[in-house]
Amino acid sequence: MTTRTLQFKIYRYDPDQDQKPYMQDIEIEVDATDRKLLDVMVKLKAKDDSIAFRRSCREGVCGSDALNINGRNGLACLTDINSFPEGKPIMLRPLPGLPVIRDLIVDMTQFFKQYHSIKPYLINNDPPPERERLQSPEDREELNGLYECILCACCSTSCPSFWWNPDKFVGPAGLLAAYRFIADTRDQATNERLDNLEDPYRLFRCHTIMNCVDVCPKGLNPTKAIGKIKDMMVKRAI
């Protein structure tokens, strides 16, 4: 089997041992069975068990292994190792803009706090009917491109507005979720949801930079959803 060597530069920081973060140089042999970056990272961990990163489903649906790969946010399990430029070490860093717990593991508390702040659950105060609430296929289609979010945080941590105000700006992932419920015909809290976002920080920090759209591993478009929220606010105001 043909093998080749990949060079890595990996961000390392263990607050228990290290004074400050550093970049570790490490290389590894890969063969034809290694397709994705995560496969190779598992091999790297077999070589040096102290490299810490999160991973779970390895098929791009759980959102655990979001990293900054060669300067760009993405999921390790969906990143093809053949996509790396030859002869240059592959740079692996934790997601930018969130505190590092250790190595490639970031503290996502702030990210989830913002997600929770938009009340990410269906609000419908009518007594639940005996059967399902009806929804036409067309109305259901409105949720496509919204409900598929895996909360990996690639988008929010690539957003400069989120870097500056992670505590006040909801961020693309949270706003996408907010619109998911606004767009749901079964939800009755549209007004409250719009009220909750009408704020110079929470929604209007979005300056349509569109990094979120660029990096989303699921091909979703938070900017478009944010635009739709703004449209609804305008409609409501005039």
Binding site: D167, K168, D195, N196, L197, E198, D199, P200, Y201, R202, L203, F204, K230, M233, V234, A237
Partner: peptide, 15 residues
């Protein structure tokens, strides 16, 4: 405490 909810975002954005 981090406070948000100033309710003037839309007006400025629209302006």
């Amino acid at each position: 405490r981090k406070i948000v909810g100033a309710h003037y975002g839309l007006k400025d954005w629209l302006a």
